[in-house]
Nucleic acid binder design. Structure first.
Lengths: 233, 233
DNA sequence: GCGACTTTGTTCCTGCGTTCACAAGCGGTT
DNA sequence: AACCGCTTGTGAACGCAGGAACAAAGTCGC
C-alpha cells in the first residue's frame, strides 16, 4: 500500500529473510513462478500471513498466477538491504567465531567479513576463512576504513560489554551478540542476541510440559504453591 | 497464579532463561537478594514485565524486600526442567558443531552432550569436547540407551531434513536446528530454528531504516542508499 | 506498638501480531 | 467477447504480549 516506507514490523522482517532463503533455493532450481500456498508451505507459515507480509512491500504478485521467483527475491533483498554485499566485522575467534568466519553461507547471502579481531596474541595473523586475524586495537581503524556498520561478537561473556563499547564507539550501528550477556548499548544502536543456552532451555521446558494438549489438565485442585512438579522420574 | 501448570507463554519462558542466567551470575558473586528493578535492568527488560513473568511461577518474592537469589534461581531451573542435567545428542561436527560440542557453557547450564554424530568417515573417532565422534548409524542405539530427548542439528542444509527424520524416529522430542532450512517434523516434536543469516539480515534491515522512530522523516541527506525504491521493474 | 516506606503481585488498558474470510483482478477457455 | 476458475491483496475480528498504575504486604524506624 504505502509505497515509501510504512514501517514493516520486525516479525515480518524476520520472515522475509526466510522467504528470501526459500526463493533463492527455488531460483537455483530453475523455478520461474510460485504461489503463496507453496511458498508458505516451504517457509512453514500460514499462506494468509505470507501474503500480508508481502503486502508491506506493495503489490508484487500477479493475481491468478502467483509470484515471479526472481522478481520477488530481488524485491525482498532490496527491502532487507542485502542487494549488495554489506561489510561486517567479527570479534572473538574461538570455536564459535571461527565457525562463523568460515561459514560460506554468509557470503552468498549478502554479508562479508572485512575484519576479524581477537585479543589472544597467538591467534593474530592466522587465516580464518581467508582473512587474517588482527588485534582488537586495529578495530577502530578498520571500521572507519571499511565503513562497516555491522559487528558480530563471539567473545567470552566477560569481555563482551567492552567489545560492544568499542564497536559502538567506532561507529558500528548494529550488533549481533552470541555471548551470554545482556549488552547495554547507546540509543540508536540495534543489538540482537542469540543465546544458545536460552534456546536449549526453552526446548527443555517444552519437553517437560509437552502434554498440555489433550487431557484437560486433571490438576491438583488445592492451591498448593508449586508442590510436586517432580513427577517424571 | 495458577499453581499447577497454567501454560506459561513462550515469550515468558525465553525470558525466564535469561533471568536464570543473570541469577546464576549473582549467586556466583555472593549476592543474597535482588529487587525486580535491578534484575530487570540486568536482563534488559521492564521491571513490571519481569514481575509478571515471575507471577506465573506463583509468589516467589517477599514484598518490601525483593527476591532471594538462590531460591528464585532454583525455582526457575525447576520450571524450565534444567534442575538436573539433560541428555542431548548433536549431529554434524563441522565448524559450528564442533564449537557447540566444545562450548563449556552448556554443561554448566543443565545440558550434556551424550552423543556426537557425523557422516564423514575421517571425523569418526575424533575427540571433540571430550567425547568421541560416532557414525550416524549409531544414532538410534545411543538415543535409546541414553534416553536423550533433545537433538541438535548442525549439518549442511541438504541433509538436515533426513537427520531430523532420523532423530524423531529414534525418539527425540525436541530439536534445535542450525541448518538454514525449514524442517518438517511430526506433531508432538518441537523444533526451534536458529538461522544466523536471518539474524544478520534483520540487522541489515534495521540498519538501512534506522531512522523510523521520529516521524519527522529527515530523509538521509546526501549519501542516501536505496533512495526511492520506487523503480521496481 | 504504630506509622511510613519499600517492593511485590495484580489488574486494566493499549497496541500489535495473527488468522479468517471476502472482494478484486488476471489468464485461459469457449 | 464473455465466462469461469484461480490467486492475490485487503479488511475485520480475535487473541496475546507489553506497559503503566494501583492495591497488598512486609520491614524498618521511632
Amino acid at each position: 500500500m504505502n509505497p515509501s516506507r510504512p514501517r514493516i514490523p520486525e516479525a515480518t522482517v524476520a520472515r522475509l529473510a526466510v522467504y528470501l532463503r526459500v526463493l533463492t533455493g527455488l531460483a537455483d532450481g530453475g523455478r520461474a513462478g510460485v504461489s503463496s500456498g507453496e511458498l508458505a508451505g516451504a517457509a512453514g507459515v500460514n499462506p494468509a500471513g505470507l501474503r500480508k507480509d508481502l503486502s508491506h512491500l506493495g503489490p508484487c504478485g500477479v493475481r491468478g498466477v502467483g509470484y515471479d521467483v526472481l522478481g520477488l527475491r530481488d524485491r525482498i533483498a532490496r527491502v532487507l538491504g542485502v542487494e549488495r554485499s554489506r561489510a561486517c566485522v567479527l570479534v572473538g575467534l574461538g570455536n564459535l567465531g571461527s565457525a562463523l568466519a568460515d561459514y560460506a553461507g554468509f557470503g552468498s547471502r549478502g554479508f562479508e567479513f572485512v575484519g576479524l579481531f581477537d585479543s589472544s596474541p597467538e591467534r593474530i595473523g592466522q587465516l580464518v576463512g581467508g582473512h587474517p586475524v588482527r588485534p582488537v586495537t586495529d578495530l577502530d581503524q578498520v571500521v572507519a576504513e571499511t565503513r562497516a556498520t555491522i559487528g558480530v561478537i563471539a567473545t567470552p561473556a566477560e569481555v563482551a560489554q567492552s567489545v560492544c563499547d568499542r564497536l559502538t564507539a567506532a561507529g558500528v550501528r548494529s550488533i549481533l551478540n552470541f555471548a551470554p550477556v545482556t549488552l547495554a548499548a547507546p540509543a540508536g544502536v540495534d543489538v540482537r542476541q542469540v543465546d544458545l543456552s536460552v534456546e536449549l532451555q526453552v526446548l527443555a521446558f517444552l519437553d517437560t510440559n509437552r502434554d498440555t494438549d489433550s487431557d484437560t489438565d486433571r490438576d491438583t485442585h488445592g492451591d498448593a504453591p508449586v508442590p510436586a512438579l517432580g513427577g517424571m522420574s
